[in-house]
């Protein structure tokens, strides 16, 4: 399906999840997809030291881990980005929590936020890891649909047409224009028109193209 992973060298990945059963499942899914599992650990600090010690392409980690079972995964991501690491980071969560998704997106490029449910859909998981490893962003469709259905007063998103909205949703999931075109059975030009219109309606015309896309996604996620 994706020619990328057939030809390129295997992605080097580390996994952190305190639930052993799930960790092994993730290992298996990613290994089956031809990735190299460099390390598989149970806590965020362990993962950080693994990342420091190895040249890695991506890390998959649970948001809620010991010791506090709150947002250790997101904190680890933020620490990584603070230290200048650009490694792709995919966060897994049991809950679709937009607020976390915002934090994850806000941390910078090459990050993703996925529900743990996706582990049982190997393609979704594998594609998400590949996307973050190549510097793209991924947001779980469930989070996106939650945000879209979220009712807010004075919502700039409300100004979008239904078509524009679905384009934005796919942008939020980390698709490129051509990916979106494929998904919606539209021409790439049409998608580009929609994207321009979206950015215009969200008053985001001033910024450079790539950053604008991120900003649009952030806006969808409810924060500017």
């Amino acid at each position: 399906m994706d020619p990328h992973h057939e030809e390129a060298p295997a992605l080097r990945v580390a996994i952190a999840d305190d639930a052993l059963l799930l960790r092994e499942g993730i290992e298996k899914v990613l290994a089956d997809a031809g990735m190299e599992i460099v390390a598989s650990v149970g806590t965020a600090p362990e993962l950080l030291s693994v990342i420091n010690a190895n040249e890695l392409d991506a890390a998959v980690l649970d948001i809620r881990m010991p010791p506090d079972y709150s947002d250790e995964g997101v904190s680890a991501l933020e620490r990584l980005r603070e230290s200048g690491s650009t490694i792709g980071v995919l966060l897994l969560s049991m809950y679709a929590t937009p607020e976390y998704a915002v934090r994850v997106m806000g941390a910078g490029a090459g990050t993703g936020y996925l529900l743990k449910d996706r582990v049982s859909e190997p393609q979704s998981l594998v594609r998400a890891v590949q996307t973050v490893a190549s510097g793209g962003s991924v947001v779980d469709p469930e989070v996106v649909s939650k945000l879209v259905s979220r009712s807010r007063a004075d919502d700039p998103i409300a100004r979008l047409t239904p078509r524009e909205r679905s384009v934005l949703e796919l942008m939020a999931e980390g698709r490129s224009n051509s990916g979106i075109a494929q998904e919606l059975f539209l021409g790439v030009k049409t998608v580009e028109t929609h994207v321009r219109s979206i950015l215009q309606k969200l008053d985001l015309e001033e910024s450079p193209e790539t950053h604008r896309r991120v900003l649009a996604v952030l806006m969808l996620l409810g924060s500017r």
């Binding site: 305190d18 639930a19 059963l21 799930l22 499942g25 298996k28 899914v29 809620r64 079972y69 049991m94 743990k116 449910d117 582990v119 049982s120 859909e121 190997p122």
Partner: peptide
């Protein structure tokens, strides 16, 4: 909630994964 999160919920994900295989 924590018990569900660490137990049943994780197991259901793992179960789904096994079923996927």
């Amino acid at each position: 909630e924590r018990d569900l999160h660490d137990g049943a919920q994780q197991r259901l994900v793992a179960l789904a994964l096994q079923l996927r295989v």
